[in-house]
Nucleic acid binder design. Structure first.
Lengths: 334, 334
DNA sequence: TTGAAAGCGGTACCAC
DNA sequence: GTGGTACCGCTTTCAA
């Protein structure tokens, strides 16, 4: 074990009585090596429990086979399906995922992106869009492939996979209006995606000739979306103008709002309808189950991974932003 | 930009009219460089937008400043607080997190661990214990620091942070019995931790002189724990022997079970009490809120990170397994 | 305080 | 098909 350090390629070469170059070939371009030699090398490697140092490989070769992913919060279930989809596809292709959370903090964001670039990741995926100009600037100059997700950025840094937040929210508003609801409420965060949804929602409401929705805003990041949803619903119900349907920008908020109604003995959707967004697992099981907007969270992740692989392995040109669409799933809460 | 490639230390050296070694010192041991030179180098670096290649640094130095974390499923909220805690502490110390999911698949587990070791991570954290002997073997031989979490392994590979699953489940059983429940049910997975909880639970029940609990097992990994919890509760209610309280090995299962009761018009805890485990956000907001077991998920992660840092940076000897304990949080569901 | 140079563990091009 | 070897970009003695 060479003084506590693991074996290297040269040790295998000696053990197999071949040159260093041959060992390298056995692992990266086996076709160029004779069956017999290959055999000998593999045996030698196994005997020494040799594990190629991929770090050294990355450095000599051109790529690290590492993709960096940046999310607002690791513990939030909102993006975790996306990360899971991303991870699955990447692993399949023998890439690893480096994950970090910004907490919606611009400084953290920048610092994490710098760390990723410093590590020479082959690509960066951000859940949502990059928040600040400095981060954007950094990424634009770096030349590393970047995928922004969960929204169709007007001018993405590089690639983008997602859906139109304004459109999805507008469709939600129209859905509620079609069901006969007239006094709408909107519960959402202050992050960019939430604001876009608010905009689409408001537009659709006014186009229908209805009064502007009652809006309750929650400062992101929230400690617990469930609790925030409950608190927001409470504030909503305290307003002078009563609402008959409330749209929440994610299912956690919606579930929290629903539970708050249950706590107050309000019938959902009888007294007030509740609609969520994202189609998280929870939306399917609450009583009543939540009407929500399906956005293909997992697919966003797997598509992001595929775009990256195409770009890196193929000579893929820069693709147009990929619209994964959305669809409303009607359940019992509306 | 040197033909599309980012600048390297030598470019900065030239720009600042100093030697390569000096630039290196400015970044890693600034005290050894005169104030003036340091200034010049920093300016040159800024001018070139120089970002040190940490990969090359890792290779020349002794450590990668990367920690690998392995979880059963990224999208499961069970371990995400732990990962978040881990990530936060590591970032603070300028380490990055490499994350991968095994899906409880032994082959994936082994393959991921090999990938981590191949990347020469400075340490590995596993959510839960390593599943198979080959993985264990690999880790034992590698000499890389390992932290197993969420249980107090009898013979950990290296370090361990967690709590006693049998004890926590036994305490839960006694809690229910103290509250007057007599016909207990147990809903859990087939993974190791669940089995340990079942064991502790069963022992406590029999020590109280009660009939063995009704057990419903769910094959891990489950697609959605909420749904599985509901389905399990349904099966539980269909048994001949009626239960008056059901313990679930996590809050997702418990919430699913609770919703199933609501769907069937059963009063909780009137007709049947439901108790969860882990104290996830959801347990606090359901109606009724779920009695559960607090296990300090986030602390497990931050402690794991701290143990790693102590080991790597200090010469920390191998610490004894760290018991983070548990406590029962009584809410309205029991 | 600064500089020269020998690695770190691979990759890949060029000969043979 | 195999071997020799010049890097990849940084860290770290060792001298000056």
């Amino acid at each position: 074990m060479r003084d506590g350090k693991s074996h290297r390629m040269e040790d295998v070469a000696v053990e197999a009585k071949v040159s260093l170059a041959t060992v390298s070939r056995v692992f990266s371009q086996p076709d160029l090596v004779s069956e017999e030699t290959r055999q000998r090398v593999h045996e030698a490697a196994a005997r020494l429990r040799y594990l190629p140092n991929l770090m050294a490989g990355s450095m000599a070769g051109k790529r690290s086979r590492i993709v960096g992913a940046l999310v607002p919060a690791i513990a939030s279930p909102i993006f975790s399906e996306t990360i899971s989809g991303l991870s699955s596809v990447l692993r399949e292709a023998r890439y690893e995922l480096m994950l970090s959370q910004s907490g919606y903090d611009p400084e953290q964001e920048l610092s994490i992106l710098q760390a990723f670039l410093g590590r020479r990741v082959d690509a960066i995926v951000v859940a949502g869009a990059v928040i600040t100009p400095p981060s954007r600037e950094l990424l634009l100059n770096a030349g590393t492939p970047v995928v922004e997700t969960w929204e169709l950025i007007a001018e993405p840094i590089d690639m983008a996979v997602g859906f139109s937040n304004p459109d999805a929210a507008a469709a939600s508003a129209r859905f509620l209006i079609d069901r006969g609801y007239r006094r709408l409420g909107f519960i959402g965060g202050t992050d960019r995606r939430s604001m876009q949804r608010l905009e689409g929602f408001g537009t659709a409401v006014s186009e229908a000739g209805l009064a502007a929705p009652q809006v309750i805003s929650i400062k992101s990041p929230a400690p617990s979306s469930f609790m925030e949803g409950g608190a927001a619903m409470e504030r909503m119900l305290r307003q002078d103008q009563k609402v008959d349907a409330v749209f929440c920008t994610n299912d956690l908020l919606a579930a929290g709002a629903l539970f708050e109604c249950q706590r107050r003995g309000l019938a959902v959707p009888g007294d007030v309808a509740v609609m969520g967004f994202s189609n998280l697992d929870i939306s399917e099981v609450t009583v009543p189950a939540l009407t929500t907007v399906q956005v293909g969270a997992r697919e966003i992740g797997s598509h992001a991974a595929q775009m990256i692989l195409d770009r890196i392995e193929g000579q893929g040109a820069r693709p147009v932003p990929l619209d994964t669409g959305f669809s409303i799933i009607e359940r019992q809460s509306t």
